[in-house]
Structure formats: structure tokens, C-alpha cells
Amino acid sequence: MIRTATPADIPVIHTLIRELAEYEKALDEVRATKEQLTEALFGERPAAYAHVAEDADGEVVGFALWFLNFSTWRGVHGIYLEDLYVRPEARGGGHGKALLTELARICVARGYERLEWSVLNWNRPAIDFYEALGARPQDEWAVYRLTDEALNALGARGGRP
């Protein structure tokens, strides 16, 4: 079963985020707190959204955390899937596909024209899963990111050339 996350899901979502980071060999990079997640997902002006996958016993075994993006070329919003994770013991049960299906349903219902995400190039099981659903890599694009010192240095310039 897929459902919209509630504030009561924050502890398990936080745990799943840490499990995902451990799988991606980046647990030391996780700084998000439960309080930050609560504010981002359920605060006065939510900036992100989440859905959870439950097994037959009602236990949360996966999640999708996403936010809106915007295509200047198409003139409409889309969904950017920040994280999709299903616990290893629950994989193969259709939870990941169900989470993506729900996000695709939201896109179609709201007139959004894109559902996008990034995947680590070494994560062959995820790549194979996504491609089996019809997703295609955007090989002509490279992801760039500013964080930490580089972000602070550029931001300190305050819009000056």
C-alpha cells in the first residue's frame, strides 16, 4: 500500500534516509534531523512531499521524497524525486514500482509533464529497474552541485561580479 506520509512517519523516514545513505556509502554526509524533515514536509509552507510504502502488516518498508521543479521550455511543473528507497528485505515486492506509479499518477492528474530523478552510475539494479519502467537516462546532461565551502564562498559575493 502506498500512502501520503504523515508527521507520525518522520522517525521511520529519517531511519530510511540513513539506510539509503549507508547503501550509497555516504552515511557520514547525512545531516538532516527529524525536526528539519518535519518542517520541510509539514511546516507552514512545505517544500517537499513524501509517500511511504507499507507491507501487508502495515510496516513502512520504503519511501519516496520529492518536490516540484519547473520546466521553462514546457511551461509547467514536474516532480523531482529526491530519494526512493525500499528496504532490501522488501525489494521485489512491487513497493518501488508502486511508489513511482503514484508519483506518475500525481503528474498526470495535475498536468505535470516530467518525473525526474538522479541515480548513481554504479547502481546497476536501480538503473535496470528504472529502464524496465520506460525511464531513459539523460546522458547529455551532467549534474553539478555547490555545497559547503564552495557554496559559502560564492554566496558571500552577494551577487557581485
Rank of each mutant, 00 (worst) to 15 (best):
98 A>E: 13
94 G>M: 11
86 V>S: 01
89 E>G: 04
87 R>L: 05
109 A>Y: 06
104 A>I: 09
106 I>D: 07
101 T>H: 15
94 G>C: 12
80 Y>K: 08
123 N>L: 02
150 A>E: 02
146 L>A: 02
95 H>Y: 10
111 G>Y: 03
109 A>I: 06
109 A>V: 07
126 A>Y: 04
109 A>N: 07
129 F>P: 01
131 E>R: 10
141 W>R: 13
110 R>S: 07
94 G>D: 08
88 P>D: 04
79 I>L: 05
138 Q>W: 10
133 L>R: 09
123 N>V: 01
131 E>L: 08
87 R>M: 06
86 V>M: 04
80 Y>L: 10
124 R>N: 08
147 T>K: 03
132 A>K: 05
86 V>A: 01
123 N>G: 04
126 A>P: 00
121 N>M: 10
86 V>R: 02
125 P>A: 03
89 E>D: 12
110 R>F: 08
129 F>L: 04
132 A>D: 05
108 V>K: 12
87 R>C: 04
148 D>L: 00
118 S>R: 12
103 L>C: 09
141 W>V: 14
111 G>S: 02
117 W>N: 12
79 I>H: 06
99 L>E: 06
146 L>M: 00
129 F>D: 02
105 R>Y: 08
104 A>D: 10
120 L>M: 14
91 R>H: 02
130 Y>M: 04
98 A>L: 11
150 A>G: 01
147 T>P: 03
134 G>P: 08
88 P>L: 05
149 E>D: 02
90 A>F: 00
138 Q>H: 11
136 R>S: 14
125 P>F: 00
111 G>P: 03
103 L>N: 07
127 I>E: 00
140 E>W: 14
125 P>I: 01
109 A>G: 04
100 L>C: 09
136 R>I: 11
85 Y>M: 03
132 A>F: 01
82 E>G: 11
107 C>I: 04
148 D>G: 01
90 A>T: 03
105 R>F: 09
140 E>T: 12
105 R>N: 15
82 E>T: 12
112 Y>S: 04
80 Y>M: 10
138 Q>Y: 11
140 E>G: 11
106 I>F: 07
88 P>Q: 04
136 R>E: 14
118 S>E: 13
148 D>T: 01
97 K>F: 12
119 V>N: 07
145 R>V: 01
89 E>Y: 06
97 K>D: 11
130 Y>G: 00
81 L>I: 08
81 L>H: 06
139 D>T: 13
149 E>A: 02
101 T>A: 15
81 L>A: 06
79 I>S: 07
129 F>H: 01
97 K>W: 10
82 E>R: 08
87 R>F: 06
102 E>T: 15
124 R>E: 13
104 A>S: 14
139 D>C: 11
106 I>Q: 10
92 G>I: 05
138 Q>V: 14
83 D>C: 07
103 L>D: 06
141 W>D: 13
102 E>I: 11
79 I>Y: 01
98 A>Q: 12
109 A>H: 08
112 Y>M: 11
109 A>T: 08
114 R>K: 13
